[in-house]
């Protein structure tokens, strides 16, 4: 993991999550804005996956459990995709809230991955 990239990722995921929850609760159906924000969260997760695979080759190894790290990362990568399909099928404001809940869950999971990589076992 790269520390500054992870920080950016958590900030983006929290911002996207709050945006979707607020817009959802004010009655907006999934839009280009909320779907785009979720897609951005997913894009950063894919980049994170590539970084995590490549990092050990550059001497950047996880201090904590690699197994636990990847369970979090793979789960996180799946979430926005599931939420995105849901939002395409069911076009109600609650799908927007679901997108937000997923982005916030991703933020927590990335934070947890950060702890596993940099702190756990140190």
């Amino acid at each position: 993991m790269i520390e500054w990239f992870t920080t950016v990722q958590v900030v983006v995921a929290v911002a996207a999550g709050l945006l979707c929850v607020v817009l959802g609760l004010t009655g907006r159906k999934p839009s280009d804005l909320t779907m785009g924000a979720t897609a951005l969260v997913e894009l950063l997760l894919v980049v994170q996956l590539i970084v995590a695979i490549a990092a050990p080759a550059f001497g950047n190894e996880a201090r904590g459990s690699v197994l636990e790290f990847y369970i979090y990362l793979i789960s996180a990568v799946l979430l926005p995709v599931a939420g995105g399909f849901w939002a395409l099928i069911e076009r109600t404001r609650w799908s927007t809230v679901v997108l937000g809940a997923i982005c916030l869950a991703v933020a927590v999971m990335v934070y947890r991955m950060n702890v596993i990589w940099f702190v756990q076992g140190a």
Binding site: L67, E68, I71, G83, W94, V98
Partner: peptide
């Protein structure tokens, strides 16, 4: 019904989180 959908989503996320955690704990 709509709120129920949001509730189901949160349940799904928690189920995924609990399952992931549990698989890791039992393996490791």
């Amino acid at each position: 019904r709509g709120i129920g959908r949001a509730l189901i989503a949160v349940y799904g996320i928690l189920a995924l989180a609990a399952t992931g955690r549990s698989v890791y704990e039992i393996i490791a």
